[in-house]
Computed example of a mutant assay.
Amino acid sequence: MNYRHAFHAGNFADVLKHAVLARILDYLGRKDAGYRVIDSHAGIGLYDLAADEALRTGEWHGGVGRIRSARLSPALREWLAPWFAALRAVNGGDDLLLYPGSPAIATALGRLQDRYHFNELHPQDAATLAALYTGDRRVRVGSEDGYVTVRAQLPPRERRGVVVIDPPFEEPGEFDRLTRAVQDAHKRFATGCLMIWYPIKDVAAVDAFLKAAAAVGYPRLVAIEQWVREVGGDGPLSGAGVLVANPPFTLADETEAILPELNRLLAEDEGAGGRVLRLAQDG
């Protein structure tokens, strides 16, 4: 309940997480049929990079700021194109004044036939999120435990879409709760896409979580990880990953091809790196 993403919006971990989400949404949008986005830990949706929280940490300068000012290869620019489109949509052009969280990325890339359920437990943040979408009939905002949302909202009426789980990792046992969420999502919406964000602090805990997730039974399961300095220690977050169940068929190969360049752009020292793990592959 104490975590506020406004201090970290647009940092290196957001770049990877939101670029992957944008590619998933771009893939879903290639078919005319509507889809649903369910975001269990949604935050406030949109972040002012000139607000006190962003100014106090300045983390966005090492993430979205660095990417926006870099000279990118054609391959990386194409991979980032859906995320760039969301940035332009919320800013009304190429200026970078606001940073979109997962809800704003989803609605910026969505269509009239798509639907959204955004959940945020923090009461003040939930109210801010609801105000952002006043009048948007595509969006419903809830305020309950995020893991309850996963169970309650699945399966979606559309039978296609993505479930985003991005918990704050404030309390012990978060990886156990995530494992149960993977099981719940598979039981209720086995054909849907599931995307989970996780920090990389305790490597053994991360590996145990990925092993448990792989045992759930998804036919395709990919983990994409990045660290901007050597993992370990008690300092600022150095690494994070996203676990994607039922990813678009091209996601792993496309990401693996551009990840070395993305690593170089966001690296803070020689300990930076990244990897794409294919934890399950059908066929």
Rank of each mutant, 00 (worst) to 15 (best):
L28H: 15
A104L: 00
L221K: 01
G93A: 13
R66S: 00
F84H: 06
Q153W: 13
E225T: 10
V148E: 09
N91Y: 12
T149Q: 14
E120A: 11
A272R: 15
A51N: 10
V162W: 03
E144L: 13
L112K: 15
H61F: 07
N11L: 13
G173H: 09
R264T: 07
A267D: 07
D114A: 06
A9N: 09
Y133F: 15
E59G: 05
P199M: 11
E171T: 14
P219W: 06
P247E: 08
A127K: 07
H41I: 03
E174W: 12
A257I: 01
R275E: 14
I44S: 01
E256S: 08
P155M: 06
D32T: 12
A19P: 13
A6R: 09
A104D: 02
P247G: 04
A205P: 11
A181N: 14
R137C: 01
L98P: 05
A85K: 12
R115T: 14
V203T: 11
D39I: 02
K187M: 00
R77A: 15
F169Q: 09
R23K: 14
H117D: 03
A205H: 05
H41S: 11
M195H: 10
V37G: 08
I224K: 02
V244H: 10
A22Q: 11
V141N: 02
